[in-house]
Design a protein around this nucleic acid. Sequence first.
DNA 1: ACAACTACTTGATCTGACGTAGTACGACAG
DNA 2: CTGTCGTACTACGTCAGATCAAGTAGTTGT
Lengths: 109, 109
Amino acid sequence: MISADFIRGYVDLLVLESLLDQPSYGYAISKRIEELSRGQYEMKETTLYSAVRRLEKTGAVTSFQGTHSQGRARTYYRLTEFGRRFYDEKCEEWRQTVALVGRFVRDPH
Amino acid sequence: MISADFIRGYVDLLVLESLLDQPSYGYAISKRIEELSRGQYEMKETTLYSAVRRLEKTGAVTSFQGTHSQGRARTYYRLTEFGRRFYDEKCEEWRQTVALVGRFVRDPH
DNA sequence: ACAACTACTTGATCTGACGTAGTACGACAG
DNA sequence: CTGTCGTACTACGTCAGATCAAGTAGTTGT
């Protein structure tokens, strides 16, 4: 299990990726992240919900209430155009970080 | 310039790398990091010094006063055996993080 | 009836990076 | 002989973000 300290800074990226193809809601996002990370990382609920609210505040996502015939009401989140650009930027920053930190990583002797 | 939020979590790794080959001191460590990151990242002094103290507390490094014929006295930091293992672990965690986050990064369309 | 799963919220706490500021020493220019 | 630059730290306060702990609420399975 990868420590959250290592993911910190990329929480937004993981969440945004989950919204690229279609709108989604908290629980589904968390399940997707868990799946894509193959059980190596599990985003805490509070981390996830605070992330989507932060993203909403900055205009990267918008929220709407899903029609629900059953179950508790879900809040869906949809990526905005700005959100897409924001995601692309985050990806680019990630690539740069990989290049940078990579220069500090040596193979164990 | 890469934002500190992206490096957060790898500060210790960068510092430890700078101590792999020989003991060093605060200012030299910061210069080495600046150099290796090719100006893309500059670790703030307060960040660096709080990191070495944290590493000292966990036993990854030990400190000693350098003999100084001139200039202000320097505090040198030396990697311990535990520190070396700690560095190797951080590197391994880094590789895992790269693999994980990489699955959330898509090329811009 | 009760647990388990889904779906989310609130409030408090803690860590770590940062800003600001100051101390301290040497060398060198003017 | 004074000021400024580069070196080498330290102290204090602040803030964002991840977490813990706990609670609310509806649905489904046994």
